[in-house]
Design a protein around this nucleic acid. Structure first.
Lengths: 204, 204
DNA sequence: GTCTATAAAGCGATAGAC
DNA sequence: GTCTATCGCTTTATAGAC
């Protein structure tokens, strides 16, 4: 049991190095523009070795997405321990998502791609994390609605999807390219904008 | 002058048929997944003929985007003639953008693609329309800020980009796929959400 | 100007030696 | 298990006949 663990650890370390590179490339170029040659060039292994560990490009993307979801779950666990109402936890996660985008750690997958969707659906690490994250956030959203911090007339799944959409909000990139305001200022505007978009109707 | 106009009209009609097909394919599959074979199959011409009229795939995408911007400009002209404050015109355009998405008339281009960006920048029909649209909407946004319908603390270009982003809001597609609510209801929630996201701070 | 046929290149995936 | 070398397919783009 302890004999093969060394080799297994080496394998796991290499696979993690691969997923690291894939995460960067997916965030930088997107799935279609990312080539397997670029992956092996960044990791420093051969293509045949890469295919020993991951049987397809889609599987690589699924592994990167699974890891991103794991990070999101870790952040929700951290936020859950903080005091304050549910809406402040949701705000914290939105802010975290924008920061991930700035740090180049947000994989960019195409919305329409059947082969990719199949690979994602078949990756239990991905689907399990997604379900768990959705469940937790759905609870936070329901709590915030009961606390009257989110419009109770909005379906909770719509609120959840708008929050997920903040993770790939193109406005951040455009504003950063313009360079007229600090990252922190732009993120603040966008996070507050999301909060207002789901806030209860003001009754003047 | 009138002699070659017949042939020119035939040419133009064919080019319009091509751009029609490209618009549908771009909205359905996106730029990367759209192949030139699919374009010629839909139009019913050969690939060589297609390349007589459009020298590259990027140029086709630019033509489709230019036409989409022309439609947006036509809608702004229609909205400009309506009575009411500037914010109601902005709301109307946001609603129109979502409807375009539903109708499959919103080209989906990748955010990161150097060759595509160059082709777009070199297409005057595209850039001119984009500048004109941005100028008009920038004025509307400034008006709405003066009317205290949009938060005056927000930079007008940020507001403009968030409005553009509504044209490719992924939440609409996800909600439509869920099928639990009518298109009109979902669009209404999303449009009102955008309005609230840029509304002035409520001062309770 | 439009067609058929094909070139040219990029990329995902694999064979076989070591 | 990793490498080099290559296959096989897709796709963009073009040559040359009509």
């Amino acid at each position: 049991m302890s004999r093969p663990s060394f080799r297994e650890k080496v394998q796991q370390a290499r696979e993690e190095a691969v997923v690291d590179a894939v995460e960067r490339l997916l965030a930088d170029k997107g799935f279609d523009a990312m080539t397997m040659d670029a992956v092996v060039a960044e990791v420093g292994i051969s293509k045949a070795s890469l295919y020993r560990h991951f049987t397809s490009k889609e599987e690589l993307a699924a592994a990167a997405m699974a890891r991103a979801l794991e990070r999101a779950l870790a952040e929700t666990a951290r936020l859950a321990a903080l005091p304050g109402p549910a809406i402040s936890r949701l705000e914290g996660l939105a802010r975290w998502a924008y920061q991930q985008q700035i740090d180049g750690r947000m994989p960019a997958l195409p919305a329409q791609s059947s082969s990719l969707r199949d690979a994602l659906a078949g990756d239990t690490a991905y689907t399990d994390s997604l379900v768990q994250l959705s469940t937790t956030l759905g609870q936070w959203i329901a709590d915030a609605q009961h606390e009257d911090a989110i419009d109770a007339a909005l379906p909770s799944d719509l609120v959840l999807y708008t929050l997920f959409a903040r993770a790939c909000d193109p406005v951040l990139g455009v504003m950063r390219a313009a360079g007229t305001h600090s990252d922190a200022q732009v993120v603040d505007w966008l996070v507050r904008g999301w909060l207002r978009s789901v806030a209860p109707q003001s009754t003047p």
